[in-house]
Design a protein around this nucleic acid. Sequence first.
DNA 1: TACATGATGCCCT
DNA 2: GGGCATCATGTAG
Length: 211
Amino acid sequence: MFASSTPLKPVFFNRDPRQVARALLGKLLIRKTPRGILAGRIVETEAYLGEGDAAAHSAAGKTARNAVLFGPPGRAYVYFIYGNHYCLNVSCLPDGVPGGVLFRALEPVTGIAQMAKARQIEVEDATTLAKISFLKKISSGPGRLSEALGVTRERDNGKNLASPRSDLRIVDDGYRVRRVTVTPRIGIVKSAEQPLRYLIDGSPFVSGRSG
DNA sequence: TACATGATGCCCT
DNA sequence: GGGCATCATGTAG
């Protein structure tokens, strides 16, 4: 499966987070597990600029927690928040320059039953798997998609998402995004007015109530 | 060592 | 549309 897919190269991430956030829409985020492949199409992202962006974790300088954001591009930055949830980001820009993109929502593509199980969502019968209302519950939100793919800081922080050998990686399967919507970011206070949230226009799988 | 806070999601209304 | 669980991290003292 995904035989025609091309793994993204590290250079893909070696640029401004705004460019990366937009370019990541439509790509596949893939997790290899002993039980099978899990995959989702990226439909919503947010850019965090590092320097000059008060909302970014890197704003106050490099610490043990956020060191990945300051490292080489294409690495997973995972953090724990609100005592409940993990959030997955990817580092951008060259080694030494902070910046990243937060993955906010995926459209489930492969391993849907396994992802639903990880999310503790019940599958009543076979027809459930095709319902949009069901699919939307699996990975429409940063904490949700992390739980669906089993992403934790302990397992995945610092992992190279651009390596074909990695069990967590991003590939291009040739899907073309028709139209992109840009809005302010979600759930932040500082620098909340900047339009740095990117969505595939019309996708029912983005986070939030309306879609 | 203590404390405030947060790039959220769920449940209830 | 709003309350709340729950804890790692950073900063102040």
